[in-house]
């Protein structure tokens, strides 16, 4: 078994809601609500959940774009949250992010060359001519042409822009890349190309991915393990095959049954989700999922279930009173 590159314990991120001139603290958006998991060196961990469940916030907190409200992050065995100032800047080289919107993630006033040179400028690596060579090399690595170096982002298609984003993310040879819905803004035909590129790069550069998506079918292609999020919490985590063949949490079951399969109409969904996702400002008591759950019992609305190993499989954990009490 390979090493853990990332270990997350009880991580939470609340966005305070402040009102009035003196910004009285009135409530919190509990975007990430005490989550714990780990990521192994070289694997791809999928993070899946409906819109607004806190996937992006979790991703951004992992990379410290947001300071967490509580919890700990160990990156390569080091306490990542203790790192500050100059050493944080240095450490960031090792951890990069690919963003969802290929139109917003590149500065429209910079050429591709300027965008891709920036990582080296920031860390003062190499001479200008070496940088240019490296940038051209990067462009070719992600399937673009070296002659694109002086073009502006608007001259590229969405897929090509996402390739530029990927080039920027791998420029500093990171070991961990957090990809926040890197293909959701793209056409289906292009999605496959980008996913394949990411797979190739992972092999070539020994990358570890945290891959965020709301689309289980995209996650299924790329990920070794999958964590399912609901309203700021991880409700189930397992290897891909285990999760798809033996989903324990009612929410996971609903998500899987909602994937359209060839030869199967959408109508045939066995378990569909009813109702709206509740607000993360005032989440339901007990298990956050209980108002939408078909199997809810009394305890579900009173006490929150912990993320615990499913019987017979220490790799498969689920946070549901049904599984902890002997399964469905």
């Amino acid at each position: 078994m390979s090493q853990n590159i990332l270990e997350v314990k009880n991580l939470s991120k609340f966005f305070p809601i402040k009102k009035g001139l003196f910004l009285r603290h009135v409530a919190d958006v509990r975007a990430v609500d005490y989550v714990s998991f780990h990521v192994r060196q070289g694997e791809t961990l999928g993070l899946v959940g409906e819109s607004g469940c806190g996937k992006s916030t979790l991703g951004r907190t992992l990379i410290r774009l947001y300071e967490p409200t509580s919890g700990s992050i160990r990156f390569k065995g080091e306490d990542f949250l203790k790192v500050r100032g100059e050493s944080l800047r240095k450490m960031r080289k090792d951890m990069q992010m690919i963003f969802q919107d290929p139109y917003a993630s590149l500065d429209p006033r910079m050429t591709v060359g300027q965008i891709l040179t920036q990582p080296f400028e920031i860390h003062n690596i190499m001479t200008p001519s070496e940088r240019l060579e490296r940038v051209k090399q990067l462009l070719e690595t992600v399937g673009l042409k070296a002659s694109h170096v002086n073009r502006y982002p608007h001259e590229f298609s969405g897929g090509q822009r996402q390739r530029i984003s990927i080039a920027r993310a791998i420029a500093l040879n990171p070991s961990l890349v957090i990809a926040d819905e890197p293909v959701s803004a793209l056409d289906v035909s292009i999605q496959a190309q980008i996913l394949n590129l990411m797979k190739d790069l992972q092999e070539k550069l020994k990358l570890t991915y945290v891959f965020i998506s709301h689309d289980l079918s995209v996650i299924e292609h790329l990920c070794d393990r999958i964590a399912v999020m609901y309203l700021g919490k991880i409700v189930e985590i397992a290897t891909r095959d285990e999760l798809f063949s033996n989903p324990k949490h009612p929410y996971t079951q609903a998500l899987i049954s909602a994937i359209p399969r060839v030869g199967e109409g959408k109508k045939k969904m066995k378990k569909s989700l009813s109702g709206e996702v509740p607000s993360p400002i005032n989440p339901p008591s007990g298990c956050h999922f209980h108002p939408r759950c078909a199997h809810k019992k009394d305890i579900c609305s009173q006490k929150a279930p912990a993320l615990e190993s499913v019987t017979g499989n220490s790799e498969h954990r689920s946070a549901c009173w049904l599984t902890t009490q002997g399964g469905l």
Partner: peptide, 10 residues
């Protein structure tokens, strides 16, 4: 996101 990207680059 390009500002966030610059931040993650350090």
């Amino acid at each position: 996101e390009f500002i966030l990207a610059a931040k993650t680059l350090g």
